[in-house]
């Protein structure tokens, strides 16, 4: 039984930035970096901001509204004002498709 959901073509990702996808009613930002693909909840855990609109610095994304920093690898807060981590989702790329595990 596989919980991997096909959410996008790999070509829809944009290296160095986040692109939002909405599998099964979720709002998830998928980031392609030099060393891999990461997925975290798109909505900032602090304000009403979309993390896919943030600038990426190294492995962190900066919330566009209040400049909180989240680590894309696990969703953890690297810098306030956010205090809650952003939920991180398992992601894999196979055969040119991007899959998320929404059951995790």
């Amino acid at each position: 039984m596989s919980n991997w959901i096909d959410v996008a073509a790999e070509a829809d990702l944009f290296e160095g930035a986040g692109i939002a996808f909405a599998p099964e009613g979720q709002d998830i930002a998928v980031f392609k970096l030099e060393d891999g693909v990461y997925a975290i909840n798109n909505l900032c855990s602090h304000g009403n901001a979309k993390l896919c609109d943030g600038f990426v610095e190294g492995h962190n994304v900066e919330c566009p509204f209040h400049q909180a920093l989240f680590d894309l690898r696990d969703g953890s807060v690297r810098c306030g004002p956010a205090t809650e981590p952003a939920k991180s989702w398992p992601v894999k790329v196979e055969g040119g498709r991007v899959y998320l595990n929404l059951a995790s």
Partner: peptide, 8 residues
């Protein structure tokens, strides 16, 4: 609009 919070 964006943040509806005077921030963005």
């Amino acid at each position: 609009y964006g943040c509806k919070d005077g921030a963005c």
